[in-house]
């Protein structure tokens, strides 16, 4: 069996809006091994994004414990979580979330800023990755000048530039046509083939088929895992 990269113990997340408490996640137990390719499936509002935020250290669980790369991270401060995100996680969001006024290269290089890498080196690494995913012609295009598929590939390049342990993608093809979506899925497959852990959130069953493990979520709990 491979090394466990992430381990969730009895994780629960409750949102407080006004006087209403909403239990978005409850009793989540999950072990993720290095190099796994996981799809998290579930209907809208079931808690998929919430789970991704916790795995990605964007938020902390209300209850339970979470070990990432052997370290308990569920009670860390905002700054410590920011460092862990920068070190271990690459995010790909449904809305691409690029900096519209920055060039493709600068967008990809952005996470390296927070690693204190020099501008020249950052640009070089960003260009290498962009070239690798077929955007060699678009280095100095601003993000808002690129097509949806191209933007999402830039976002993936940005997620990969730090060489993270885990790539977390929240509905990465939700805003794309099927052809662009397929290209994106191919990219994930490729990186998984290099031994990286990939976790994709989707409610598209056909996309989930590419994953080696499918976890289904319903009403904040894991209802099936196969």
């Amino acid at each position: 069996m491979n090394e466990v990269i992430a381990e969730l113990h009895n994780i629960g997340k409750t949102y407080h809006t006004g006087k209403v408490n909403f239990e978005a996640l409850r009793g989540i137990n999950l072990k993720i091994e290095r190099g796994e390719y996981i799809a998290i499936l579930g209907p809208s509002g079931s808690g998929k994004s919430t789970l991704m935020q916790i795995i990605g250290c964007l938020s902390t669980p209300t209850v339970g414990s979470y070990f990432l790369a052997g370290k308990e991270v569920s009670k860390l401060s905002g700054d410590e979580l920011a460092k862990i995100r920068n070190l271990y996680i690459g995010f790909v969001f449904q809305k691409f979330n690029l900096m519209p006024q920055m060039t493709a290269v600068d967008n990809v290089a952005l996470p390296l800023v927070y690693r204190g890498i020099k501008t020249e080196e950052r640009r070089k690494q960003a260009k290498d990755i962009l070239r690798h995913i077929g955007l060699g012609q678009h280095f100095s295009h601003h993000a808002n000048e690129l097509s949806g598929g191209q933007q999402q590939r830039v976002a993936i390049a940005r997620a990969l530039v730090t060489n993270p342990e885990i790539i977390l993608a929240d509905e990465p093809t939700g805003n794309l046509d099927s052809k662009s979506g397929a290209e994106i899925i191919n990219l994930f497959g490729e990186f998984n083939a290099k031994g990286k852990t990939v976790i994709i959130i989707t409610h598209d069953v056909s996309m989930a088929r590419h994953a080696k493990r499918i976890i289904e979520i319903q009403d904040g709990s894991i209802s099936a895992s196969r």
């Binding site: 700054d79 979330n97 900096m99 996470p111 927070y114």
Partner: peptide, 16 residues
């Protein structure tokens, strides 16, 4: 807000 949120998501600390 958006830019700051994004920068934090990809690893910017409060101080930065």
């Amino acid at each position: 807000t958006y830019e700051i949120g994004l920068r934090k998501a990809i690893g910017a600390t409060d101080q930065q």
